[in-house]
Design a protein around this nucleic acid. Structure first.
Lengths: 183, 183
DNA sequence: CGTGCTCTTGAATAACTTCAAGGGCTGTGG
DNA sequence: CCACAGCCCTTGAAGTTATTCAAGAGCACG
């Protein structure tokens, strides 16, 4: 809680996400976007969004919905940071990553893989890398999650989610407004 | 960081804010809304929003903008919780409240008044009321801010904002898209 | 004139950071 | 193929920040 120039994470994206649609309406960006793993990017010019907004109200609402999803996730992160200890924060973010990867078909039955390092996780959990390392050891010891160089194995999903106070509601995964419908 | 049923705060509103526009597009609410002080409320039926969205694209974009502002504030809170110690978090939230009250003409040159108690502040800063109390004493001692039963006096704005790592960018107060233009 | 809420203080414990050092894996150049 | 550099992870120990438990003071309202 000292160093001025430490990086901090406010959210993350999985393949398929519309990245930083926010800057379309905000006009200016209040954060940076870093790539951790390899990425494939499609760009959407702002003029195209503006046109879609005008011509297809249903799609406009869908775009709006997608940014509100980001806000809902931000709120959950705020809860996480205000209420949970480091091991629980990490368990919580693991639960979120796993669910979100599954939603785009990239999860496994026993966990997931990620390009994130322990330092990256630390940045997203408001802890030092060292403390994060010890928290990970704790999760491992308790049989909740096993992180090893980007491979995360989770024996019992319910156990981990209960431990971390995670409920997937805020991901709005059931939505009839799901983005995936539009292809 | 222990008790299960503690309340936590993810944001606050000042008079004039469109409260929880999010639930229009999300359909379902992932948080509660508490009134701390006296309030005056105007309700907007969802059907009216839907109609405006369809007929006035410019207004639709304004509504969208207003929810993105909430998301930007969420991000700043995440930074605050990940990076700052309790006294700085409190200084930060004081700076934000002050600015936002000023934007609607409710601030004073030397601070602001608020119905918030120390416990409420604690809920928004992820600290216990006791620790919040000591952090407030620290701010007082350092001449940064003086909280006394809802009256907050700030001698030197710049000093407080520097101390707390606060910059008002994320409030997008200069916007040509400012909500106030529409009346 | 108490009852309840807000605020304050003290002391013991827990959570987290910082400083310091070392181990393990991977890729690269000699 | 080996040596080395660099990153990622791990561990120890001391110090700081925050929580918990406990108790009491100040103020407002009925």
């Amino acid at each position: 809680m000292e160093s001025e120039d430490r990086r901090y994470g406010v959210s993350f994206h999985v393949p398929g996400d519309f990245v930083d649609l926010h800057c379309f309406a905000l006009k200016r960006l209040d954060h940076n976007i870093d790539c951790i793993g390899p990425v494939r990017v499609a760009q959407v010019p702002h003029t195209a969004i503006a046109q879609v907004m005008q011509e297809k109200p249903h799609l406009a609402r869908l775009l709006w919905f997608s940014t509100l999803l980001d806000a809902a996730m931000h709120r959950e992160w705020i809860m996480k940071l205000e209420q949970l200890t480091a091991p629980k924060r990490i368990g919580h973010i693991f639960a979120e990553i796993w669910r979100r990867l599954e939603m785009v078909g990239l999860g496994y039955p026993d966990g997931f893989n990620t390009p994130l390092t322990q330092s990256d996780i630390a940045d997203m959990c408001g802890a030092t890398p060292i403390h994060t390392n010890r928290a990970l050891a704790e999760l491992r010891k308790q049989g909740l999650a096993d992180f090893k160089r980007g491979e995360v194995r989770i024996a019992d999903r319910e156990k981990l989610e209960n431990y971390s106070g995670f409920t997937p509601d805020y991901l709005y995964g059931e939505g009839e407004l799901s983005l995936r419908e539009v292809g």
